[in-house]
């Protein structure tokens, strides 16, 4: 699944110390080095706005259906009034993704139309785009060279939308990624809005090695314009559990 793959940006531990890499090449290493077929985990999402916090807990399952497409199921565990609701995403690299939500209060499944990638993910400061796997062709990358970040020598990679449609969809005019070449993981990022003002800053608070794969397990996104911030923490990550494909069906959502 490409959406969540980025959060869990996963990379083999093969340090490549070539300064000649282009921005695109660096990002390819970040994006395409995933080595898992399925995964599960628990996400705690904390959204902080004006001194108040909203917490949501989600159980997540994901699997690669094909080389390009993934499936994902999110079961909401908290708060109680939405407990039991479950979200199913079936990606189609050719054509529209399918999204479904099961509502226990109605005992019904509803199909949700896809909305813009710039939309907030569950009301957080993460957009659907931020938590998804970027399509490399949507962006023009430029390697801005090495820079020290938290005493790690990192690549600074600039990404600008390849066209006006991407800019409108994502609402970004530019993103700067800090990439740690040891782990091929993004360790920090800055997002600029369409007026080229710094809008959001991503802090990667924890990167954990789970079965030889580096996962970003604690992400904090600060909106510097509104002052709100959102944090996603991943726990109990397990990979390659041979999750049944039955799980990623509408029928299973009801259970």
């Amino acid at each position: 699944m490409k959406k969540l793959a980025l959060i869990l940006t996963v990379v083999l531990l093969i340090p490549l110390y070539s300064e000649e890499l282009t921005g695109r090449a660096v990002m390819e290493k970040v994006v395409n080095k995933t080595e898992w077929n399925d995964m599960e985990g628990e996400i705690t999402m904390k959204i902080m706005v004006r001194g108040r916090t909203r917490t949501r807990k989600i159980k997540l399952y994901s699997r690669k259906r094909t080389e390009q497409d993934s499936d994902m199921v999110m079961k909401f565990l908290y708060p109680p009034d939405i407990e039991g609701t479950a979200f199913l995403l079936i990606e189609h690299s050719k054509g529209e993704d399918e999204r479904y939500l099961y509502l226990p209060a109605l005992r019904r499944i509803k199909r949700i139309a896809a909305s813009g990638k710039g939309g907030a993910f569950m009301g957080s400061d993460f957009s659907y785009y931020d938590i998804g796997k970027p399509k490399l062709k949507d962006w023009k990358y430029r390697n801005l060279g090495f820079v020290k970040f938290n005493s790690i020598k990192c690549y600074r990679i600039e990404a600008v939308p390849s066209g006006p449609k991407i800019e409108k969809d994502t609402k970004y005019s530019k993103i700067i990624h800090w990439v740690d070449p040891n782990r091929w993981s993004i360790v920090h990022a800055e997002y600029y809005d369409r007026t080229a003002t710094l809008w959001k800053v991503l802090y990667v608070k924890e990167i954990k090695k789970i079965e030889d794969i580096w996962f970003q397990t604690d992400l904090l996104m600060k909106n510097v314009l509104s002052g709100s911030q959102s944090e996603m923490e991943f726990e109990a990550i397990k990979i390659n559990q041979r999750i049944s494909k039955e799980l990623f069906t509408k029928r299973y959502l009801v259970q």
């Binding site: 909401f76 708060p79 009034d81 939405i82 609701t85 979200f87 999204r99 939500l101 509502l103 226990p104 209060a105 109605l106 509803k110 949700i112 139309a113 909305s115 939309g119 907030a120 569950m122 009301g123």
Partner: peptide, 20 residues
């Protein structure tokens, strides 16, 4: 079903479909 739960879930549906 409790009305409160129904309301919470239909709002959640909206939030996932669009934006809160």
């Amino acid at each position: 079903v409790e009305g409160k739960k129904l309301i919470a879930q239909l709002l959640q549906l909206y939030e996932l479909s669009s934006s809160p």
